[in-house]
Design a protein around this nucleic acid. Structure first.
Length: 259
DNA sequence: ATGACTGTAAAATACAGA
């Protein structure tokens, strides 16, 4: 089974590339983030034509997540149980489903904006709620993974220049400790291979030639439990999908499982 | 070559992204 996670930065803007990539990559289950599209405008029909079902948690302009599967889509849970409000309500940042015997979460962790900002405190609370929500599945015998845009670089080696990020979000000890709390549940960081260069970056800013200069960050992560890790055959970042006109600023992370 | 931000609508600028 081929499982992937991809922040598409608008499923509407990315639809031609998304459909082409699903076919060319042979992905069975795709966790998507930043659909930026209300549920009623979600391209269910186009995906169905390719044989995929979709479970969607999205409200419109911002955020939005989905699980797309051609190997079944059961026991969908939309939203993060116990998740904090922001600006008076829950944001669509999490959805989970069971696909072909594998339980997956698609998550879009809050950005945080600046250290000390309300959004940063929200990010840390959101990550605590995520830990609590996935604890039982993490310990289970069923292959399980939380895939998505975590908006955290796990180590200094996961950013192109640590000096650039000094004092910024995405690299703080508190954010990295939140990842540690997930690992304490029995989840492991499934680190993908880069297809070029030394670091498996998954995000490159659109500006200042960051992609050609490989000024990237690894912030799209796959945290899998022991059965998931045991089944893993390969994992890589499909940086080809970051190239050219009409690309997302994130590349897909692909994991092959023997299940 | 991989190329000098992009997407949405609270739209003709503001806001978010990281």
């Amino acid at each position: 089974m081929r499982i992937a996670t991809w922040n598409v930065n608008s499923i509407t803007a990315r639809l031609p590339r998304l459909l082409a990539w699903l076919e060319s990559s042979g992905t069975d289950v795709l966790c998507i983030q930043e659909t930026k599209c209300a549920d009623e405008a979600f391209p269910y029909a186009e995906l169905r034509e390719l044989g995929y079902e979709a479970a969607v948690n999205a409200t419109g302009r911002w955020n939005g997540v989905a699980v797309i599967s051609r190997v079944g889509l059961e026991d969908v849970v939309s939203g993060l149980p116990g998740g904090p409000d922001y600006d008076g309500g829950q944001e669509p940042r999490a959805i989970s489903a069971t696909c072909g015997g594998v339980r997956v979460w698609s998550v879009y962790v809050p950005n945080g904006r600046e250290v000390g900002h309300d959004h940063y405190a929200y990010k840390l609370r959101w990550l605590e709620a995520l830990r609590d929500a996935v604890a039982a599945d993490a310990e289970g015998e069923r292959p399980f993974a939380v895939l998505g845009d975590y908006n955290i670089a796990p180590t200094d080696d996961d950013v192109y220049d640590p000096a650039v990020f000094e004092g910024a979000t995405h690299v703080t000890p508190a954010e990295r400790a939140a990842l540690g709390a997930l690992r304490d549940l029995g989840l492991s960081d499934v680190v993908p291979r880069p297809l070029k260069y030394d670091h498996p970056y998954t995000y490159w800013d659109y500006r200042q030639l960051c992609f050609p200069k490989n000024r990237g960050m690894r912030i799209d992560l796959v945290y899998g439990n022991a059965p998931f890790v045991k089944a893993e055959q390969d994992a890589y970042v499909d940086r080809e999908e970051r190239k050219g006109k009409g690309a997302s600023d994130h590349a897909p992370v692909v994991v092959d499982l023997d299940v």
